[in-house]
Amino acid sequence: MTSDLQQTDNRAPKHAGERRAWVYIMLMVNIVFILLLMTLGIIALRVGNYLPENTDILFIVGKNPEVSLGDDEIAKWETGQRVNIFQSAYANGQGEPTVVSQDGTKVVAPGTLSTYRFTMCNSGNMAVLYEIDLDFILKIGTEVQETYNFPMQVRLRDASGDYLIGSETEWVNVKDAILNRHVSLLGAFSYETFTMELLWEFEGGDDELDTLYGNLAAQKGVTLTLDINTFAEEHFDPTASGGTEYEVEGTKEFGGTIRWLWLTLLFINTAVLVFYVSWLMNKRLRKW
């Protein structure tokens, strides 16, 4: 009888020590796991600046920026793209030719109206802020004119009818074309179509100036170059909306955002682990 009790008493201290050690180990594992999560998060903050686009970083959706411009003829502009804003011939309402280039090159004249549509498409997964800027360069002969009075006017509007330059009733001289709305927002998976109109009024009120340019054109040549410059940068809120959204296959994930489902599971797991260990520790220490 005495030997069984002695044997029982001898086993109890050894098992308690093992269980205590196991508790400490689990506790350390829990702490290390949480520290690991934090470290990975900090690494993601820094490394993410250098990783290729569209690379998911743990629970952060990879950024996939993709902004392109195009028009009815060219699906996507290349750098320094030459586009067809002007024409080589114009006709009146009766279909009679009123302005015809002698050599097939593009021309402008009193009475000509050029309309050009182009589209900015944000097929990436982040909202962007964009600017559109117009530059006009006038050359008489081979000399670029720094200051000039050229009788051409411009308007620029988006698809919703809001004017970036001019208004429904107001045209702006190309020399003075400034943006009414300097910066605009284009959401992810969205596009915006712009319509630009360039008008040289037939009865603009200064026939002498019109005739002067026409005669200069015959003597030396007068050319007008229009540059359309666009600039876009990511918006601080990748989910911000602007423009017209288009449908995409699958679920839309916005770049730089957190995958909440994954993160939620992670936090729940962490919380359960933390509270389990705490409960275990509470139970074990009470026995100790």
Partner: peptide, 28 residues
Amino acid sequence: STCAIGTTFAKYTTADKASDTARVAKWG
């Protein structure tokens, strides 16, 4: 630590340019 992630990545930027040229029609 995870709440600050979305604001510290490098900013994406892009620029594009298109142009066209026309000459004034001759009168003379």
